Amino acid sequence: MHGPFHRGGARKPMAEINVVPFIDVMLVLLVIFMITAPMLTQGVQVDLPQVSSEPMDSTDNDEPVIVSVDRDGQYFISLGDEETAVSLDEVADRVIILLERRPGTPVMVRGDRNVSYGQVVNLMSTLQIAGVSNVGLISEPPPSDG
Score class of each variant (00 low, 15 high):
residue 3 G to I: 03
residue 3 G to M: 01
residue 3 G to N: 01
residue 6 H to L: 04
residue 6 H to G: 07
residue 6 H to D: 15
residue 7 R to C: 06
residue 8 G to V: 06
residue 9 G to I: 02
residue 11 R to E: 08
residue 11 R to N: 13
residue 12 K to S: 09
residue 12 K to Y: 05
residue 16 E to N: 13
residue 21 P to C: 11
residue 25 V to I: 09
residue 26 M to R: 01
residue 27 L to C: 11
residue 27 L to V: 11
residue 30 L to V: 11
residue 31 V to K: 00
residue 34 M to N: 08
residue 34 M to I: 03
residue 34 M to F: 10
residue 35 I to Y: 05
residue 40 L to S: 12
residue 44 V to N: 03
residue 47 D to Q: 12
residue 48 L to I: 10
residue 48 L to R: 00
residue 52 S to P: 00
residue 52 S to G: 10
residue 53 S to D: 09
residue 55 P to S: 02
residue 56 M to I: 13
residue 60 D to I: 12
residue 64 P to E: 05
residue 65 V to G: 07
residue 65 V to L: 15
residue 66 I to G: 02
residue 66 I to F: 04
residue 68 S to Y: 00
residue 70 D to L: 03
residue 73 G to E: 01
residue 75 Y to T: 13
residue 76 F to S: 07
residue 78 S to F: 00
residue 78 S to K: 14
residue 78 S to H: 01
residue 79 L to W: 13
residue 80 G to H: 08
residue 81 D to G: 11
residue 84 T to C: 01
residue 86 V to M: 06
residue 88 L to D: 07
residue 93 D to N: 13
residue 95 V to W: 00
residue 97 I to T: 15
residue 98 L to F: 13
residue 99 L to G: 14
residue 99 L to M: 15
residue 100 E to A: 15
residue 101 R to V: 15
residue 103 P to Y: 00
residue 104 G to Q: 04
residue 104 G to H: 06
residue 111 G to C: 10
residue 112 D to L: 08
residue 113 R to I: 13
residue 115 V to D: 00
residue 115 V to W: 01
residue 121 V to S: 11
residue 129 I to S: 15
residue 131 G to E: 04
residue 133 S to Q: 14
residue 134 N to F: 06
residue 134 N to Y: 07
residue 134 N to C: 00
residue 135 V to K: 02
residue 135 V to D: 02
residue 136 G to V: 06
residue 137 L to W: 08
residue 138 I to S: 08
residue 139 S to T: 13
residue 141 P to K: 10
residue 143 P to I: 03
residue 145 D to T: 14
residue 146 G to T: 13
